[in-house]
């Protein structure tokens, strides 16, 4: 049986992780490669690195990050953050990344999803969607949640899936940072309506929250950042909890 995945997400700026100060036994918790390798040893199933460096040399930065991680980490990882062109994806994958995640660029140019899926295969194209519930509408936002769009979450998710996205990484902006649990209704609806895996993100604050998102919302993976970085829920402990509650976990 396919295991549910636990995915720590690391924000990287100028080659350094932005969060992660409390992490266990590291010589350099600011080093994304060392932190990633530590998560892998702890039992993380996959890693996501979001490069938030503002630079004109984005492509070089992404390639260096991918290469450094790939040389040290023996589990799959995704690189994202400002990926806008086919060449960006090419350098990430050829430098050793398993998947890339695209976000704003896909909304601006939906055909990009198709082109990437054709050229590199759906399995390595993750479309990240940041959305905020306003009234009874889930509104897709761009640029790390700063710019609202006219696009609605469920129709957009369906569209990128039809265009060949391999996975959807859905972040609820309403839940992100609250530690009150994932957006179960919206995540559940995405899982039901789409034929591709859904990674739930935003709101994880306890092991129970992962249990809920895997059972009630049927997510394929749960992603979190600060609870892992600050060692509030060690991955080993989280996975044991989920195993004890009969969730298929590696």
């Amino acid at each position: 049986m396919l295991a549910k995945r636990i995915i720590p997400c690391l924000d990287v700026k100028e080659g350094r992780t932005v969060k992660g100060i409390n992490f266990v036994d590291l010589k350099d918790a600011g080093d994304p490669v060392e932190l990633g390798a530590a998560y892998s040893r702890e039992g993380a199933d996959e890693l996501v690195f979001l490069d938030i460096t503002a630079t004109h040399e984005k492509r070089k930065t992404l390639a260096a990050l991918a290469r450094n991680v790939a040389s040290q980490v023996n589990i799959p990882f995704t690189i994202g953050g400002g990926i806008g062109a086919i060449q960006d994806v090419d350098v990430c994958l050829s430098s050793g990344a398993d998947k890339v995640s695209i976000n704003s660029a896909a909304v601006r140019n939906p055909r990009l999803v198709e082109q990437l899926a054709m050229q590199f295969g759906s399995q390595c194209i993750v479309v990240a969607i940041d959305a905020k519930q306003i009234g009874d509408q889930w509104v897709v936002h761009l640029n790390g949640g700063r710019i609202p769009t006219e696009v609605e979450l469920f129709s957009w998710a369906k569209e990128v899936s039809d265009r060949g996205a391999g996975e959807i990484l859905f972040t609820s902006m309403n839940h992100d940072g609250t530690k009150n649990g994932f957006a179960l209704n919206a995540t559940g609806r995405l899982s039901r309506e789409l034929p591709i895996p859904i990674i739930a993100s935003g709101g994880a604050g306890s092991a129970e929250h992962f249990y809920e998102v895997f059972t009630i919302a049927n997510a394929d993976a749960g992603l979190a950042a600060s609870i892992f970085h600050y060692d509030e829920i060690p991955i080993r402990v989280l996975k044991q909890y989920l195993k004890d509650h009969s969730i298929p976990i590696r």
Binding site: M1, L2, A3, D45, G166, P197, D220
Partner: peptide, 26 residues
């Protein structure tokens, strides 16, 4: 179930040549 089959899954019934260390591992 979704296609592609993507993620961690268990392998089993391993042949003798492979030994038992990987039996039922993800």
């Amino acid at each position: 179930l979704k296609v592609p089959h993507m993620g961690w899954n268990i392998i089993y019934n391993l042949g003798d040549a492979l030994g038992q260390k990987m039996e039922k591992e993800y």
